[in-house]
Design a protein around this nucleic acid. Sequence first.
DNA 1: CGATAAGTTGAACTGGCTCAAGTCATGTGG
DNA 2: CCACATGACTTGAGCCAGTTCAACTTATCG
Lengths: 253, 253
Amino acid sequence: MSEPGSGQGGTHSGERVCPSNPNVSCGDCRLGDLCLPITLDAGEINQLDEIVKRGRPLKRGDALYRQGEKFTSVFAVRSGSVKSFQTALDGEERVTGLYLPGEILGMGGISSMQYDNTAVALETASVCEIPFHLLEELSVKIPSLQGRFFRLMSQEITKDQKMLTMVSTNTAEERVSALLLSISARNHHRKLSQTCFILPMTRAEIGSYLGLTLETVSRIFSRLQKQGLIKVDNKEITIEELDGLKALAKVSS
Amino acid sequence: MSEPGSGQGGTHSGERVCPSNPNVSCGDCRLGDLCLPITLDAGEINQLDEIVKRGRPLKRGDALYRQGEKFTSVFAVRSGSVKSFQTALDGEERVTGLYLPGEILGMGGISSMQYDNTAVALETASVCEIPFHLLEELSVKIPSLQGRFFRLMSQEITKDQKMLTMVSTNTAEERVSALLLSISARNHHRKLSQTCFILPMTRAEIGSYLGLTLETVSRIFSRLQKQGLIKVDNKEITIEELDGLKALAKVSS
DNA sequence: CGATAAGTTGAACTGGCTCAAGTCATGTGG
DNA sequence: CCACATGACTTGAGCCAGTTCAACTTATCG
């Protein structure tokens, strides 16, 4: 039904500007209004463009950075998807974030000057690397870039706190529903289908992210399907009753 | 044993500079090396000083800001303690943060331009209010202030993710131990006793913060006391076996 | 001093976990 | 291109950490 790598970015294979083309600049990038440059004018985007490094596409499992490494850059997902996770003392991985195209990651490393988690591609993905010391210098020259970055970090704080509230209060069913709705809303924001998408994570990764076991995640999917709220075909999810799912998730957005 | 308001700040009542004196400037504040100005030189501190508003002390229950209100300022705790919480759809309060002297709060409001939680004083407290638009302007002029604020926000992200990992994986015992150790470490950093302190929150608030019920928190306290790791006298906690508690908490710091 | 909020402790219950036994998809080497 | 290995997923049964409900004690404060 879908070859590997088609999860999030692949549905756009017919576009003018290929999202994994390393030569596309920030001004041309179709994610322009989601990513860092959103509030910048053309001249400023060019300045930002010069400090952005665009590497070759990553394969599933490739790391953007690793927990404990010296912090150098933040990253913007251009296509595909990325997860971040912390490795506990016992070696267990705990997923802390899922990042889709247009989203920024790595900001947790700024304070301690080393990355506080590991980020790996969940599928074939391309990312922009933004060396932080250059971004800082540029932010002093372009106040609106500083403002944009303050806002981005604030967004991450808000997101994490929402997640924290959810994991510590909501039931398994509410958490799984909320995750599906979150992916749905982010797809919608990127002009993709909000009712049908490929899950970029395995059941185990979803469980780790939501504080559940993989068996519970699987059972909830089956239950939601039985209730007619979603259709599950392996990793392909179709939301049949968006409002019903929202009622179940008990979250504002 | 201790009158209200003596929890965190009151133990310093014999100091030269009274922490609730609204006339003390950033340069004179005994929290100087914990709070915002940490990396600034004398001239820069004076500039920051001019934008900081120091109101009269807050009483227990007074709000610094409320969820949904227009975002205007971030706040630094000068003395006392502050909690932040989100109000769910059903009206339930979920504690999302505990802030002790020298710590900054309110940064979650920057992105959406409205506060994403409510912050109230847990005891008599004094705070500095820093209007954000002035802080932004000043940050462009003082690059090290921009850097400092980037680092502060990053710290908040790291803290939240650590909390998220903890709440979704650790047992009740580990969570309670970790909170006690966190308060202990923060007290130590502020040159207060790391083994004996007054809990600024009720059992219900601690439970809400850690994703537990108040009964469980109470039971864990009793259990830890029975094991000889801590001594509990209502809100006064004495850590008897710091290393034992650390072993139990299973956290790095 | 009396009212009310905070905290403790016990007993029974339950949502999600653990363990187990399978099926199904994906990909690899012969 | 098939066979087989391996990882991903599903489903069931029993269990347990933490919840819920309840009764009580202890602090706080007008």
